[in-house]
Amino acid sequence: DEVSLNVVSFTPKTAAVSAGFEHFVNAVNEEFAGELSLNWRGGPEVMPPFRLADAVRNNSIDMALISPSYYSGLVPSSSSANFSFKNYEEILESGYYDRMTEIHAERGLRYLGEIPATDVKFFLFFQDRVDGIDDLAGKRIRVFPTGLPFIEALGANGLVLPIGEIYTAMERGAIDGFMQGNLGWAEQYEDVVNYYITPPFYRAGFSILVSERAWERLPEELRGELQDYVRNTLGPELDQSWGDVIAAGNAEVEAAGFEEIALEGEEAERYLEIAIDAAWEHMQEQIGDDELTAELRSMLVE
């Protein structure tokens, strides 16, 4: 008998990052045809993104595709997955995903694996030109909570604003810039963004969480096969699958006329170092367990 699971993602179905989710859903449905079918119900219009992990935990939806930073309130170490420059296979080899499975289990969540996106990274975007790292001090930059430690470490001012406010805030100069990936939005903001800093930092990867009740419904054998397929076969494939999406994002950035401010050599290194160090320092506070932090860091960062 085919088991059908309700899946909800943290982004709208048509968002650029949802390309990876579509790939995942289709691949699983094909691989396990007749045994398992994933029914992707939608995104934020169905379930508030920051409550998606709660919904999996209390069994009201079967599977969530979600950025790890969206449920650090349930699993304090979850956002660590962002703070790395390694690719999927390197992280897989380090044992990080097995460790995360244990950590999630301790918190009553089932971690099936990751939809990795090593090449989807984050940038700082600005209206006016900035000259190097030191020029960032005092700038007002809109961030999501995960990015706040980095912004503060740069000496800049982090603001957490609703998405609907970013445009007007940029247009009127209430903020100088914001932190964002570069997928699928550049053309909407062409009038208020002119510059972005490279190199980009961090990595993206999206957790696949399964509810306990849904997991019980799967036959024992299928559980093993599913986990093995997602981690070892599909994972590497998904990590490589972002080429088109990223190319489209880059093309949009170019079409919108954003100019790259490329940090070079030592300055670029320092920039990335601040990004990683600030994030892990904050991770340490958030996790509250120095040993675990060190263990995870050694898996994700050289």
């Binding site: 920051f50 969206y70 349930l74 918190r107």
Partner: peptide, 18 residues
């Protein structure tokens, strides 16, 4: 009560107990 026992926090900057 569940949030109290589980120790869940809000996923925000202040991260208060839910």
């Amino acid at each position: 009560l569940d949030q109290f026992q589980y120790g869940s926090r809000e996923t925000t900057v202040l991260a208060p107990r839910s």
